[in-house]
Design a binder for these strands. Structure first.
Lengths: 225, 225
DNA sequence: ACAAAGATTTAGATAAGTCTAAAATATAAT
DNA sequence: ATTATATTTTAGACTTATCTAAATCTTTGT
């Protein structure tokens, strides 16, 4: 059994996981930006985590950091907690899909293995979260994402919304209002190369939407045929 | 809205509430004992809490501390969280009555007002916890206990178990095995003044038990007729 | 009333996590 | 290749919560 990590350490590992998607190196600046702390604090912290026994990060001066196997495991554990909790808060307690993130951010650090397993059981061991994110398995295997950003699609391509960014309540309410929720299918019917706007048609109905890059970059889709 | 308190501060306030039952003064030594920290740490902490704005404690050198109105409110908020969570963990997630305490100790500090209200609603706004404890109301009124320690009863008195101490899993399993759970009625059929043992008969059946002072002091009862 | 015992408080240290400002290194541009 | 810019790291300081050891009160016993 490895030593209990502090909430802060868990937040760093989670941030690094998300920035690196589990592989490759991330700069201290990126982490500082993502976590809203000073670069100096990040350097301090990553040096400590790389000096842990066992090390959670691989750190080289001016070269950024990468998660070690142990660091990745710890990150996936928290991500599993987060996604199970979001689903639980929605399904069992009736939280709306834009409210769950903040609550899960606090709960994810304190629930026991027991709690995690019981919640997973109550939910029927789900493989996707409330916003479509893959949920790491009990053994911390992360399912293959198998999707790309909506941003990358072009005219005439069809896709299905797979996953949306969960951390901005306003953005989530906007998505829900437009019907842009996981599972929904659409076709790209126009692209403007100057502003990267995408015009899409939802379902095979009449609904048309024009989406800017700051929206299309936050939505993951599966390309159809 | 008063400033967010740290988990530790909340633990101190909770400890002081329990030791003082909400009224009167408690010594730093008692708190140190209860929280398993050094007396010096307690002195430090209570001085800080008394210096807060608004003050959470009334502190006088060598005279111990008492909760202020604000301190008492903060304590009751956490106690409400704790008791709602214990019930929730049992009813909704199937935790056993000796497992819930530890989990609730961690969760109680991080749940939002929203979470608290939704849990209370799912449980039907209960007034008593899993171990029979009164649950402070939404407005933080603590219901009158209206009971006394089993320890104080004598031969021929009848009573109903109202509340048992929740923090020792082994003790809770022992109680459950003996049928000593809240709601159960009994009659005292013997008292030994030398060891303070109490002989009781459960229900009006044949079951007889002999209980030592370390058990009878942990059980609260309501005296009948 | 006064000394001994017991409890409480102060003083000084430690550890985690943060900051700002200054120094060092890396990247890019001419 | 050398300077300018941007990023990263170091150094020193602060905060919260803790400890041990020493000093100071209170209480108790005679």
């Amino acid at each position: 059994m490895t030593k209990r990590l502090s909430d802060k350490v868990e937040d760093y590992l989670k941030s690094i996981y998300h920035l690196s998607k589990g592989e490759g190196r991330v700069s201290t600046g990126q982490i500082a930006e993502d976590m809203d702390v000073s670069p100096a604090s990040v350097t301090d912290m990553v040096q400590r985590l790389a000096a842990e026994n066992p090390p959670l990060l691989d750190y080289r001066k001016h070269q950024g950091v990468a998660l070690t196997g142990d660091g990745k495991k710890a990150a996936l554990e928290i991500i599993r907690h987060h996604r199970l909790l979001e689903l639980f808060l929605h399904e069992v307690l009736g939280f709306s899909w834009d409210q769950v993130h903040e609550e899960a951010e606090r709960l994810e650090h304190v629930i026991s293995e027991e709690f995690e397993e019981r919640v997973a059981a109550v939910l029927g061991n789900p493989q996707r979260g409330l916003h479509g994110e893959p949920i790491p398995s009990r053994t911390l295997e992360m399912p293959d994402p198998d999707c790309c950003h909506l941003q990358e699609l072009r005219t005439n391509q069809r896709g299905r919304i797979q996953e949306v960014n969960d951390d901005d309540p306003g953005f989530l309410r906007y998505l829900a209002a437009q019907g842009l929720i996981p599972g929904v299918e659409f076709e790209v019917i126009g692209y403007s190369m100057y502003d990267d706007n995408l015009r899409i048609q939802i379902g095979d109905g009449k609904e048309e939407l024009v989406l800017g890059a700051s929206v299309t970059s936050q939505i993951q889709v599966k390309v159809l045929e």
